[in-house]
């Protein structure tokens, strides 16, 4: 029991130091002062109003949302078949493909950004939202593959055999048995891909040009004029990401099961 108390204390301290900077954002976003001040001198909704009234902020938010959704869709469309082939396929170069799929996690984002910038500049994709989707998909793909590979490794193929034995074609087996049973993994993979894109700033700095995503707009805002609007935006972003994580916990396959 004594060791357990120590563990709880350690966790509490870690949480305190990691979470506190995030929590400070909440009171600041409701501050009545025109500048960052803690503790805030009074209460006001003005920074939320300013965010909601500014078309640039709203524009950036929408862009981030649809870029995130498109990234999730594209990353699933590529990552799910890739995971199937990595787990079930037997072909030359499978090991290499496995490592290439994981490469974006290892290569520093700044290097990816510069490389993609060089390429997209030639293709005239800078400032195009779909260019950003392609680049974000590259970053999100490893997470999708990781989650799906773990899900597929645990999948009981006897169920697919049973389905085929009962008269189901390959396609109907996939639609009626395999994919429904993999739904928790699919949910986790899709939401992780969404967050990867929604939070991403480095690639967005290079690629989004004048059509900014939310993180890019926040970054610019900090550089140009620092006022508590940024705190209000942060709060909303934290809330949204928290909702997504709760969804993963509720409907997705637990990340602890994925890490095995």
């Amino acid at each position: 029991m004594k060791g357990r108390h120590g563990l709880i204390a350690a966790c509490a301290i870690i949480y305190f130091f990691l979470m506190l900077p995030l929590l400070v954002v909440f009171p600041i976003s409701l501050s009545s002062a025109p500048y960052m001040q803690f503790p805030p001198p009074g209460f006001s909704w003005q920074w939320y109003e300013r965010y909601l009234d500014d078309p640039q902020w709203i524009d950036a938010t929408w862009r981030s949302l649809y870029v995130g959704v498109a990234t999730a869709v594209l990353a699933l469309a590529l990552g799910v078949p890739l995971a199937f082939s990595l787990v079930r396929g037997k072909f030359f170069g499978r090991g290499i493909l496995d490592r290439i799929a994981m490469a974006p996690v290892i290569v520093p984002t700044i290097i990816v950004s510069v490389a993609v910038y060089g390429l997209f500049a030639k293709l005239k994709l800078i400032g195009m939202w779909y260019g950003l989707v392609v680049a974000h998909t590259v970053l999100a793909l490893p997470f999708v593959v990781l989650v799906m590979v773990a899900g597929l490794r645990d999948f009981d193929r006897g169920l697919e055999q049973a389905a085929e034995g009962l008269g189901a074609s390959r396609l109907r087996t996939l639609m009626r048995v395999t994919l429904p049973l993999l739904r928790p993994s699919l949910v986790s993979a899709g939401l992780l891909a969404f967050i990867t894109s929604f939070d991403e700033v480095v690639v967005a700095l290079f690629l989004s040009g004048a059509n900014m995503t939310l993180p890019k707009k926040m970054f610019d805002n900090i550089l140009m004029e620092i006022d508590p609007t940024i705190a209000a935006v942060s709060v909303m972003q934290i809330v949204l990401v928290t909702i997504v994580l709760v969804l993963i916990g509720r409907f997705g396959r637990g990340l602890s099961a994925t890490a095995r």
Binding site: D156, A162, A163, G165, L166, A168, P180, L181
Partner: peptide
């Protein structure tokens, strides 16, 4: 799928996401 052979597996291989009715209906739906 084309053999029309019923099989009971060692571990039953019931579809865990389908109800009893849906499990039994499966071969007919196919």
């Amino acid at each position: 799928a084309k053999r029309d052979i019923g099989m009971v597996f060692q571990n039953y291989a019931l579809f865990p996401h389908l109800t009893v009715r849906q499990n039994v209906a499966f071969p007919l739906e196919m």
